[in-house]
């Protein structure tokens, strides 16, 4: 398998990662009352790959 096909193959992983991050960030911005400071969640979502957005959705979100 050459380099290009390899990169193409791995592309979906990055797409999903970025997608999760964007969903989480959009939700965080719209959330009037997250479970904890907003800036903290912002950092967690952006810095902690994959797990960050998921932890935000499970713990930080609260229904609004």
């Amino acid at each position: 398998m050459d380099q290009t096909t390899m990169l193409l193959a791995l592309l979906p992983i990055f797409v999903i990662q970025i997608g999760l991050m964007i969903f989480a960030l959009v939700d965080l911005i719209k959330n009037p009352n997250p479970n904890g400071p907003k800036w903290m969640w912002g950092i967690i979502i952006v810095v902690v790959n994959i797990i960050g957005p998921i932890v935000y959705f499970v713990v930080g979100r609260r229904n609004y």
Partner: peptide, 17 residues
């Protein structure tokens, strides 16, 4: 509206890949 329909599949797809 709570994005569960998006993020839960994302988690499973990532785990699968």
């Amino acid at each position: 509206r709570n994005y569960k329909i998006f993020w839960i599949p994302c988690v499973f797809i990532l785990l699968g890949i």
